[in-house]
Nucleic acid binder design. Structure first.
Length: 194
DNA sequence: CTCTCGATGTTCT
DNA sequence: GAACATCGAGAGG
């Protein structure tokens, strides 16, 4: 299980270092494991793409808190997004998990996704559906929780990381839209978009 | 393959 | 009342 010092690193380092790590999820009836293959960083009150740029609200208070907690929110009336809080208390930042590569209990993930065998985890809302992630896990401590946590990657091969602009943030200022804060594993088939 | 658009509920103005 | 860190269906090439 990754410890708090991992999440306390600068957000861009956390975002890059999360690639290749393993998400473990234990729900009442199921166990899953998957590899993180795509992330995005949202950093501070000056990042107009970051929810925390609106200030401290009931919704965003988690981002202002201690690193290592899950920030899960609901958008478009139907989708959940999984984020990991980073940095020091008082500095709002988080990393969005955008895509996973299924490893264990793929059959159940397919069922959770409505029976479709492709596109199980290649998007932030899809992976939450596949892994039974919803609002009940919001605010949980990823360094001690028994239902969801992260683990060190198994393979030691060097990762080929690509940096691109973030997706779905047309509302942000130009400089923030252009920031290369989206990271993914090069040529991995489970990444959300080319 | 591409593009457009509707779904649907929470949050903030 | 508007906007939203998305997805998938449907139309058209």
């Amino acid at each position: 299980m990754l410890d708090r010092t991992f999440y306390q690193m600068p957000t861009l380092d956390v975002a890059k270092n999360l690639l290749g790590k393993i998400i473990v999820r234990r729900s009442p009836n199921n166990y899953y494991a998957a590899k993180i293959v795509e992330t995005e960083a949202y950093i501070g009150g000056n990042d107009t793409a970051c929810h925390a740029s609106k200030g401290l609200t009931p919704r965003t208070q988690l981002m202002f808190g201690e690193a290592g907690f899950a920030y899960i929110y609901f958008v478009y009336g139907m989708h959940y997004m999984l984020n990991v809080v980073t940095e020091k208390k008082g500095f709002p930042a988080a990393v969005l998990i955008r895509a996973i590569e299924p490893l264990e209990n793929i059959e159940q993930m397919i069922i959770n996704r409505g029976g479709q065998e492709k596109n199980i985890g290649n998007g932030p809302a899809k992976l939450c559906q596949a892994l039974e992630i919803n609002k009940t896990l919001n605010g949980c401590d990823l360094t001690i929780n028994q239902e969801i946590w992260l683990e060190e990657s198994q393979s030691k091969t060097k990762l080929d990381i690509v940096a691109k602009p973030r997706i779905g943030i047309d509302y942000a200022k130009d400089e923030d839209r252009e920031a290369l804060w989206r990271f993914y594993l090069k040529s991995n088939p489970h990444v959300s978009k080319k």
